[in-house]
Write a protein that binds this DNA or RNA. Structure first.
Lengths: 153, 153
DNA sequence: TTAAAGTCTATAATTCCTATAGACCAAATG
DNA sequence: CATTTGGTCTATAGGAATTATAGACTTTAA
């Protein structure tokens, strides 16, 4: 299960990507628009900024904006900002592999071998979809939905 | 990240699959052999039994045994026993879909669309590998390792 | 210089995970 | 049929992570 932080982050990024008019948006605006607890969103946006995904400007007229174009931002990058490397087991982490406490031999561990495939599968999906792709797919579903409604009225 | 329960479960199942001689093994035996806290393992084995993966016999000479052949037991079934359906978001659960609290429209939610692909990717891997497959792969790695050692000595 | 707006630290409330204790129940065997 | 072996169930404790809030601090534009 992904965390609230990740889900809120994706909502907030979607908001920014869709509203490409203004150059910066207030935390309060985004919180209100997407129904996210303001103080919680604050921390989330800060993380996204530290990851280089968002840019911010302080002071009057300031706010947050995308630092990366929606078509250049893989969803995997956003998810990793909050869920860490997408390792199902510690020994499959991206940096120096951390042996599980209960594991005798990392190299031959069956669980590890299988979970390595899981990790590959997950990252392949998440790194293959950009923020723009996600919004487009959402839009397609919305079209389908309204079309269905047109027919049924 | 998968839980200790899942990892311990896979270790215990591997132990039973490898030791196909006796008909039943004691919790205490398995706990000792695989270095798992006995009381904790107790709860794990009970879950596996309730899932129909293990069978048990009480009383003297009793113990646990596999209720499913290793080649007929997908790892996904074991993981699901402890991690639940492998839904990255509640709205992708196997039963009646539970709408996320923060979600406005499930049908068009971009996060949900992407996570559906993730779920498919994960389940495809986990349901495509049996306990036997896992042990075989582990054995292959062990062979590789000993071969390497032979050369270096 | 003052008000706007992001940044940082601390902390509360809740939930989940890991693990242990102990009472209880079922079955085999003499 | 009683005793002993061994699985079953309930409760619970400790700790870590998650979700969220409060408030002080810093930067910057006008």
């Amino acid at each position: 299960m992904i965390s609230m932080k990740t889900k809120y982050a994706l909502k907030a990024l979607g908001f920014l990507a869709r509203a490409q008019g203004k150059d910066a948006f207030l935390i309060a605006e985004m919180a209100a628009a997407e129904n996210i607890p303001k103080k919680f969103l604050e921390a989330i946006l800060l993380t996204l900024k530290n990851q280089g995904i968002l840019a911010s400007k302080k002071g009057p007229g300031g706010g947050y904006s995308l630092a990366v174009a929606p078509e250049a931002l893989p969803i995997g990058r956003v998810v990793r900002a909050f869920e860490g490397d997408l390792a199902p087991v510690p020994c499959l982490g991206d940096g120096a592999p951390v042996k599980c406490t209960e594991c005798e031999d990392m190299a031959t561990c069956g669980t590890r071998l299988v979970m390595a495939d899981v990790k590959t599968a997950v990252t392949t999906v998440l790194d293959g979809v950009t923020l723009k792709d996600m919004l487009d797919r959402s839009e397609v579903e919305r079209q389908k939905q309204s079309k269905t409604i047109d027919y049924t009225i």
